[in-house]
Design a binder for these strands. Structure first.
Lengths: 197, 197
DNA sequence: TTTTGGTTCATACGTATGTATGAATAGCGT
DNA sequence: ACGCTATTCATACATACGTATGAACCAAAA
């Protein structure tokens, strides 16, 4: 890690790595400060608490994902085509901890971190906008845009984690580039077919 | 809780409730034994360790879910129709902690509990069987049954957690029975359309 | 040069953790 | 009634946790 970064940035980066991989409960303050090469008290001093740092991480990775959604949604192309690009991005972007962190937080029975709610709002907004546009031009069938948006995101978010499943069960090896390409094509096709009029 | 149950069963039930809600890391041995009205040492005595108890819980809830999958897959009806029933079951069955626990474990960067792998194997097997049957009779389009099965499960597994998302973002309130029915209909339709030939 | 405020440090604290252990208890079989 | 095994109990242990704190340090401003 770049020692030249100021301590708050190093803490954020270390926390992002560890929280993305292991989740809030399984990561300790000592692990984060050790990885960031900072003092044990640095988290409390700069962020106030472990939880506040966690929210800062969610804000950082969430904003990044939402930016990508909004950015692709604003590109040229048919609505379904742009939805396909968003789905491809979620499935193929290498450093993208947000989907896993979202799923993990959704699976916990505790209040969602506010930055996560904000990010989901932007993501849903971007996808719902595309769906409404497609419904207006007749390329997407009628239905509740919110439900459609949830369905669009379910597959890529979950199938990003397919590499976690033993190969002989998932039937695919996501570390194989050809299989990865096939998976992306499959997901995009499946989503496109379910939305098209 | 039924005090009449033997201690191992009470521990399993208490652990199932707590692990389902909060996940392995956030639940303590003391919380489980307190809820089960058992002694602090009971977990180590009967199960060997906290982790072993966790695996026993996964085995219990995983076997239950897999049984439901296999049972519905074996019913009468067209393959797509039975897939629809499986999806409906996942979305509507009230006491079904397995989907959330699966997602949570998939979102962690640690080895999957063996009982979870076994359960996924049975679930995938049941759904893939239906897909192959549908492809054989021409009702389901050609494609990799494993990929199709993953896609089938992605939406219901994830959309079970929609109630966790603030209503004005998800656009739906799953506590409202009419919205719940609409959600189920939407998911079944979406999946059916994406599979149909 | 001195002062000031931000930052880092080493240490401490109270609380919590999972596991271990020897003693006590209970129930079953002989 | 006795012996044995399973089970439960209360307590202890070593370790770990997040947060707090006063001291030390550093850089910028006066």
């Amino acid at each position: 890690m770049n020692q030249k970064l100021p301590v708050p940035e190093r803490l954020l980066a270390a926390a992002a790595d560890l929280f993305a991989r292991d989740g809030f409960d399984a990561v300790s303050v000592r692990q984060i400060t050790s990885r960031a090469k900072a003092n044990l008290g640095a988290i409390t001093y700069h962020y106030g608490s472990k939880e506040a740092l966690f929210h800062a991480v969610i804000d950082r990775v969430g904003a990044h994902l939402a930016d990508r959604f909004v950015s692709i949604a604003a590109e040229k192309g048919a609505p379904l085509e742009r939805i396909g690009r968003i789905v491809t991005m979620v499935l193929t972007e290498p450093n993208l901890p947000a989907p896993t962190m979202i799923l993990r937080e959704l699976a916990m029975d505790r209040p969602l971190p506010p930055p996560l709610v904000q990010m989901m709002q932007r993501n849903m907004g971007a996808v719902m906008g595309l769906i409404r546009e497609g419904q207006a031009d007749g390329s997407i069938r009628h239905g509740d845009p919110a439900l459609f948006a949830m369905s669009v995101m379910a597959q890529p978010f979950l199938l990003r984690m397919v590499s976690r499943i033993p190969r002989d069960i998932a039937g695919i090896d996501r570390n194989d580039p050809e299989t990865q390409r096939k998976l992306v094509k499959h997901v995009v096709t499946t989503i496109t077919r379910s939305l098209a009029s």
